[in-house]
Amino acid sequence: MKTSPAHIVEVRVLLAVFAALIMLTVVTVAVSYFDLGAFNLVVAMSIATIKAALVAFWFMHLRYDSGLHAFIFLVGVAFLGFFLIITMLDAVTYHPAVQTWEQSK
């Protein structure tokens, strides 16, 4: 394992990241006034993910950090993904049984 040097991030880099984050916030709010159908979710989540990546890579120094930290972070996200996808797959498949019941009431 490589020891991570404590990187000092330039002020202008931090300010640039901040500006980008604010800009993306404006974009995502603006986009929300248009109905893009199924793409509402895709666009909003893509923008959020870009913002999260900006925070992680620059504010949280992942860009300059040991790869292990990024790996751990991704493992967390991946297992959350497994959990979410399998649970959703099941919930969507058994949902008709709930709907029939609700309609029969």
Partner: peptide, 21 residues
């Protein structure tokens, strides 16, 4: 071990598809 939890739920009303996985 993380991906097998549903075998506790084969008769719970879980979908057969997910049960098979």
């Amino acid at each position: 071990g993380f991906l097998v939890w549903g075998h506790h739920m084969f008769v719970s009303g879980q979908s057969p598809l997910v049960g098979m996985i």
